[in-house]
Design a protein around this nucleic acid. Sequence first.
RNA 1: GGAGCCGUGGUGUAGCCUGGUAAACAUGCCGGCCUGUCAAGCCGGAGAUCGCGGGUUCAAAUCCCGUCGGCUCCGCCA
Length: 592
Amino acid sequence: MRLKRTFHCGKLDKNYIGNRVVVAGWVQGRRDHGGLIFIDLRDRYGIIQVVFDQQKNADFFSQAEKLRAEYVIAVAGQVVARSEETVNPKLPTGEIEITTEDMEVFSTSRTPPFYIEDQLDTDENIRLSYRYLDLRRPEMQRSLELRHRVSLATREYLDAAGFWEIETPFLTRSTPEGARDYLVPSRTAPGNFFALPQSPQLFKQLLMVSGVDRYFQIVRCFRDEDLRADRQPEFTQIDMEMSFCDRRDIMEEVENLVCSLFARVLGKKLHSPFPVLTYAEAMERYGSDRPDRRFGMELKDISDIAARCGFNVFKKVVERNGAVKGLLVQEGGSFSRKELDDLTALVQSWGTGGLAWMIVTEDEVKSPISKFFTSEQLADLSRRLEGKPGDVLLFVADKKELALKVLGQLRLHLAHKLGRIPGDVDDFLWVVDFPLFVYDDEEERFAANHHPFTAPLPEDLTMLEDSPLKARSQAYDLVYNGIEVAGGSIRIHDRATQERIFGLLQMTPEEAVEKFGFLLQAFEYGAPPHGGIAFGLDRLLMLMAGDTSIRNVIPFPKTASGNCLLTGAPAPVTPAQLRELHISLCKNEKQP
RNA sequence: GGAGCCGUGGUGUAGCCUGGUAAACAUGCCGGCCUGUCAAGCCGGAGAUCGCGGGUUCAAAUCCCGUCGGCUCCGCCA
């Protein structure tokens, strides 16, 4: 390297006119006028125009003619003002340019497979295969910076609030419950395996028992489950835990953290405190435990009307303790018969029997099922859903939970399809009072809704054994624009209650000791009341960046099938490696 | 585990439903001209057998089956 950089491309402006500078970066583009060549030189900070003049740069002009996109060069020269008519208002550095006095080519480049620019329209597999080129694009550079800024602001905020960042093991033991673990074979203990953590849950609770009082960690977590646009097998959490606190303390601390992040990183002021919805209310009004409230379209119960009507499908559902739920779609009266049929097929794919619809007009209600309703009942339905002429009313009749869930999904589907979700809103809310347990049909037993260390609501402790599905927990989720970005709970901190919960999860005392003995024992040595929360950092960043894919805020993400297109992982290993780990593959698996 | 969409020069698309002459367009790339462009311009040129495999047919980018890869969703993700 002969030429040493003295200034960043994007940081020069007219204040530097007259300076001799050395800039270095990638050739963004070249405009060759024969005896005059313009090069846009790009670095992390921006783009500056460099001018090569055949008259003035005779000794290396021929070298400049050979420059191509993505060559890496350094240029020494004068910062000069552009003449008024050649100023480029689109560039922050458009008032100046660099006239070259010297140049060095550090490396050449093959023709890149896609343009290094925003608004890229390329197959994602090409972007991922050439991620180092993708990351050169300004919007990806901003994404990398956003991640850095948020992590840094998180550390600064939490440090000031008395939290210590403490690392916990990545090689730990597999635990029952929860997601599928990524396993790591032990070489020194044949046949035994480590698991990569799904979260540092148990370690942070132990740190509370250790007297750490306030802990946090920006930490990678691993879950071997199928991927989604907002789910990766390895992802990052902002993990927090606090002692001697109730859930309001934690929620307040989290709100302050979020407000601080938005103020410092995005310059946005959020309204706090965030609204709080109970799980029951969220389900009833939005059919979701992570409601998107940026648009209306709340669900309404019409079971009472349905019970009185002559439509058997509705009537029978109500008689069997089911429910009929309604959704108003404003101006949905223009849906074609085919569109309504498609919506019906959609809700059927979500597991319910069908979709009933009624189109409200000036003087009647048009529907294949209107004949089963008295005109008074039809008017009641319109009134209940606040339907006006031109609207459509949609109904799902099923078991209450399913009806709500299906109609909630339909609500989201239609809001997206009809473009009714405002883009410039930051809606945060808490959902609290989750059921402590859910019933796992496959395993035919109760399962922890949040995780088995979540404390029940004190007033629901007595119903644990008799009606476990009614018991609520001291868990809370933070929802941002309809996406869960954080979840946590007050934890159990005494052995008896913890054993009671394990028992309800059909874990034998022996099993409990075998899997979680270290936690149970820790609780016998003075455990403070404690609770915490974990943010999905990637999701938070995705939303802060206004993106819809988590992959754009992860530097090196995996594809939907869990592959890394850049490195080719996962990949076979040698027989020697397997032997060392005491592993043999099944016959039908490909041996390397 | 299931469903849907997609796969055509380097890149983005058209063609596919209604099989049939040199697979079209844009951009990029290469060469030439050009001293004020910034999506530079003008002229010329090269470049894909249509993800892969099989089948139907006189004939397949086009129809059928399978498979691989990408994306989205359901299940799953405490």
